[in-house]
Design a protein around this nucleic acid. Structure first.
Lengths: 212, 212
DNA sequence: CTAGCACTCATTGTTCAACAAACATAGACG
DNA sequence: CGTCTATGTTTGTTGAACAATGAGTGCTAG
């Protein structure tokens, strides 16, 4: 399954890059030919992606790119609140991985200056993954990364990559600074507020786009 | 994949029932014959189980039942602390699913009276899954259920099903009662203490068994 | 006798071809 | 206009085949 892991990665890259649109049907034969693998191998990759929530499988109707509903968005933000805030709150005061958060903020600022909003989004995901990395738990990081990938599909679905990401760069920076100065507890409280705001904005975009 | 989901479930059942011992090698041809499916179908199921952490895959050496190390146990308890305590703390005061917790406690007591420790363990898993169900988040419940299944493999590994489970029945009951009387915050604090105790006991069993 | 090495064998990784089953579409019919 | 059947397409699953890798075996040389 060496080759296969690479296949999963290639598919994931195309998904979060927005090349495969949310809701789009993924034909086994077409994709198998495109990636030059057999149908069986592709199906194994699909199962992994399905387990990660990036792809939806309906029996006898094949797989499509996941298209998160508003209910899914709400669910995802519940996970984010519980995981991110709890991890940040109980993180030690000077965790080595804090530099990852700072690096993600700086990367986001750089890409924002270039108006490369897709990469800003990636950097934003990197920031929140960095937050969870303060837990020192591989399992938590893995599960959380999946949830964030799903959330990116939600962003892609309503096509709001630009203005939705911009304001959060500054807020991410604030969270790091508060963590540095006032400690994990205060940072967690602030993050909770920001997550609530973020959720409202995404749901607003859904409502505007007329999506369910 | 209708049939396949059932295959994943059948395999999972045998895993958490302890019929397939942690570390045991799982031959593709043998299991394919036993479950009367083709090798390809079995491999797809293996991928799902691998993604869930129940099974370990090493390239060209096949899959074996996961055999959690002490590092894994520590990791799992980190997840449990963050998820369970956070969910309980922020749960509404009278969540409908609280009855699930109570039901799980009663089931555990019933099986304990029969000295059926395997089922006591299952009921214990049910209790903690019920706690997480207070989050109303499918994703959190799904990920958490996987982590708990892995933990059960850890229990099976050191063959301590009996005395390790018994004391927690009473503690689970206490958590519910505190939740009912003093509210979610107090219950979460108590649960945190109990999780710490539980982790120490499991790690102690690992040390006694001479496992890594 | 033992260390090292080539070799054999079993198992996994991957592909292909085939068929059954379910779904979707189109056309016939009332 | 709506419903039903017929056809075609896609998925679900199987079995066989072959390459690639690992593991164990036995041989040879020292």
């Amino acid at each position: 399954m060496n080759h296969d892991s690479s296949l999963v990665n290639r598919l994931t890259d195309r998904l979060i890059a927005g090349e495969l649109r949310p809701g789009e049907r993924l034909s086994e034969t077409a994709l198998a030919k495109e990636f030059d693998v057999s149908r069986n191998t592709l199906r194994e990759a699909f199962r992994v992606l399905g387990e990660q929530g990036l792809v939806t499988h309906i029996p006898h109707r094949g797989v499509s790119v996941a298209s998160p509903s508003t209910a899914d968005v709400v669910d995802i933000y519940r996970v984010r609140h519980h995981v991110e805030c709890s991890v940040l709150e109980y993180a030690p005061r000077n965790h080595p991985n804090a530099v990852r958060m700072e690096a993600a903020v700086e990367a986001a600022e750089k890409f924002a200056a270039e108006e490369n909003w897709l990469e800003v989004g990636t950097a934003n995901m990197g920031f929140h993954n960095a937050v969870v990395s303060l837990s020192d738990s591989r399992r938590l990081m893995r599960s959380f990364a999946n949830v964030l990938a799903e959330l990116r599909l939600a962003f892609l679905k309503v096509e709001v990559l630009d203005f939705l990401h911009a304001p959060f760069i500054e807020r991410n920076r604030e969270v790091v600074e508060i963590y540095r100065s006032d400690g994990p507890g205060a940072a967690a409280a602030r993050l909770a507020v920001y997550l609530g705001d973020s959720e409202r904005q995404v749901l607003g975009a859904y409502a505007r786009a007329g999506q369910d």
